[in-house]
Amino acid sequence: MCLAVPMTITTIDGFQCTCEAKGIEREVSLFMLQHESLEPGDHVLVHVGYAIQKVSEEEAADSWALFDEMLAAGI
């Protein structure tokens, strides 16, 4: 439950936003990141539907590669 996944913000409406990663869309809350200025195209680390941190594009790409490996390994 503690694993967070980076996603890309597509649309923002108040504290709610839509995020995308690897073709999957999710409704995500930005309530825990209300001190950050965020806009579509930014990457956030999402945990149980809540963005917990803003991350760079490189950081997001690293994590996506990791998840591909873990999926392939079935773990």
Partner: peptide, 16 residues
């Protein structure tokens, strides 16, 4: 149930 990473969103939910 959860550690800090999971409990914080529960707090956020209630705070909102």
């Amino acid at each position: 149930a959860g550690f800090e990473t999971t409990t914080a969103p529960v707090a956020a939910m209630l705070a909102e």
